[in-house]
Amino acid sequence: MTISRLLSDRRLTPYLFLLPAILVMATFVYLPIIENFYYSLFRWSSIDPRFTFVGLNNYQRILNDPIIAVSLRNNVLYAVISVFFQVFIALVLAAILEGRVIRPRWGSFFRNMLFLPSVLAITVVGITWQLIYRPDTGLLNQFLEGVGLGFLKRTWLGDEGTAIYSVIAVSQWQWVGYVMILFIVAIQAIPEELYESARIDGANLVSQFIHITVPLVRETTLVMTTITVIGAFKVFDIVWVMTAGGPNHASEVLGNYLYRVAFRNDEMGYAAAIASLLFVITFLLTFVQLRLGRSGEEV
């Protein structure tokens, strides 16, 4: 019974424990990535599944496709705005909640309430905000009208100038509370004595925040920044649900455009090339993060 002998070989034990994970990751994560590169060298569609080899043509097209440029710009916007709100603002809010100004019981209440949007499904959030953004019956325009800011009324999702910002705003609404909790956890790990001695030295809340909180949650900040930035390049569902990239591709992001090209424009090969671009971007960002993380350890 060679199998049972194999199983009883202690040197193999860790590999056996890892086997299911490796198999699943290989089949459903890594194999598809490799296949994707292969597919990107062909022209084919869902309706006419004949593969025509086109070499690097699909990649060449990426360089000249204005919608790719718009998508990239939107992904970058998504990243920048998200870092501001989900890292910077979330950190400030966490510091206020942990800053002894708000009673713990209320702090816990606020924390839970701000966290709540993040447990909602993307379609719940997306459809809700579509209704809020509706130009005529939507909550937002009615609110603006009601408080005398009627001139600010917009067709939020229908205007090329505001569509992507309106979608990004929803992401902030959903995730700020979530990241805030992560920062709260990080702040709670800071030894209380540091704050005490700062207070004895007469430091006010702002300077405590700048000199104690910010440096000591540096690692969490770095992790959150990377994850937020990478998340901004992965974004698909909220855009798909709210605008599907419209109007006139104004709110297109890479993930959304990829899906559209694959399953609407009948260009699977080109979609695979866009997927490769997305892969390269996330890979580079991860690489940068690892480097930054390492230099962080050295400091």
């Binding site: 509706r134 130009p135 005529d136 917009r154 067709t155 229908g158 109007p247």
Partner: peptide, 16 residues
């Protein structure tokens, strides 16, 4: 046209 047609669905316009 009503304002902001790009932000309204066809059925939404029909409702109005």
């Amino acid at each position: 046209f009503n304002e902001g047609p790009n932000g309204i669905s066809h059925s939404g316009a029909r409702s109005s």
